[in-house]
């Protein structure tokens, strides 16, 4: 079905802004996520690293605002354009869980 846009990512929480509120009073938080893993590609295995801009709203934002930077997380969400003009994307976090250990 066209419309699939789900991303699951294990990442550590990078820089995180303070919790803010939209004019209608919805909590919002912005952060960066740092990802590192081994992935299969062209018949071999390789290491991957990336950083991703992410946002969360509502209860997820409130919960995320209590997580300290450096924590390991498994986040699920969808991708959307970060600015109206441009091609950078942001991960909109729908849910997240703390990853125990490594």
């Amino acid at each position: 079905m066209p419309g699939a846009n789900r991303l699951t990512l294990d990442a550590t929480l990078g820089e995180r802004h303070d919790l803010r509120y939209t004019p209608a009073g919805i909590p919002a938080v912005e952060c960066t996520l740092r990802h590192a893993s081994l992935q299969a590609e062209a018949g071999g295995e390789r290491s991957v690293e990336c950083e991703l801009f992410a946002v969360a709203y509502g209860d997820v934002a409130t919960a995320l605002s209590r997580v300290s930077p450096g924590s390991a997380l498994r986040v699920r969400g969808f991708l959307a354009r970060r600015y109206r003009t441009g091609i950078t994307v942001a991960l909109h976090i729908n849910e997240f869980a703390m990853n125990e250990g490594n």
């Binding site: 939209t22 004019p23 209608a24 919805i26 919002a28 946002v55 709203y57 509502g58």
Partner: peptide, 16 residues
């Protein structure tokens, strides 16, 4: 009432 989300696309992060 202040809109909860954008009536056009649903984005909640409306900017004053």
């Amino acid at each position: 009432r202040l809109a909860r989300a954008c009536p056009q696309c649903g984005n909640v992060d409306l900017l004053p």
